[in-house]
């Protein structure tokens, strides 16, 4: 997995609550058997009209945000389905960090498996960053995962919390499966004991 250490980039403002995974990547794009190539369809139904033309008003179509690497959004971001196509599409577009007051559980976990940092902050601080994002390409936001800070273009430093294990995996770009294989003896032992205790499973 790609490491996440520091990021300095333009943040796109998406001031909507309950952004669901159907919005992030509509179902017609779930038919792929690959992980890549979904960026062009990120937010497809908000981004393109019925004829496939870009809707100029949508944030990622605006010149200032076409290369955004950070997304600032409202509460309960990523609610709905478990589709990992949502973080795949976000990453494929070039966004490596999402900032919102809260996330849906499965989406949040899926981000970490793909080198994306989802930062949860209180609404007031998200409001500050949303205003910052509204400034466009001249306002670059800096993220430092090791230090757990977000720094605005004006130098305001905002600290964020993150689970230490998830932070460690993201900083090192660790592969979960390889990590779990290190505990294979414990799995073997559990499996033997469980199949004696609950043989019907």
């Amino acid at each position: 997995m790609e490491k996440f250490e520091k990021l300095s980039g333009v943040a796109a403002p998406l001031p909507l609550i309950n952004v669901d995974t159907d919005m992030i990547i509509p179902k017609q794009f779930l038919k792929t058997i690959k992980r890549s190539g979904l960026g062009v369809n990120l937010f497809d139904e908000m981004r393109y009209d019925d004829d496939g033309n870009e809707i100029p008003d949508f944030v990622l179509n605006k010149p200032a945000y076409r290369n955004a690497e950070i997304l600032v959004a409202g509460e309960n971001f990523g609610c709905g389905s478990s589709r990992e196509h949502a973080p795949w599409a976000i990453k494929d577009f070039g966004i490596r960090c999402v900032i919102a007051p809260s996330y849906a559980d499965i989406f949040y976990n899926n981000c970490f498996k793909n080198g994306i940092l989802p930062i949860a902050l209180p609404q007031e601080q998200v409001d500050i960053l949303m205003a910052e994002a509204e400034k466009g390409a001249n306002a670059r936001i800096e993220i430092d995962l090791e230090a757990q800070t977000v720094t605005t273009s004006e130098g305001e430093v905002i600290r964020f919390d993150i689970d230490p294990f998830k932070k460690h995996c993201l900083l090192e770009g660790l592969d979960d499966i390889a990590l779990t294989f290190e505990k294979v003896a414990a799995i073997d032992k559990f499996e033997a004991a469980a199949s004696a205790a609950r043989p019907w499973v």
């Binding site: 990992e84 498996k113 499966i177």
Partner: peptide, 21 residues
């Protein structure tokens, strides 16, 4: 019983376990 992403599907296929808090 709960839903998981594709990376976790791969993790369960390979290890029959899931990393959880």
């Amino acid at each position: 019983a709960h839903g998981i992403g594709t990376s976790e599907v791969e993790h369960v296929l390979a290890t029959q376990t899931l990393i959880q808090s």
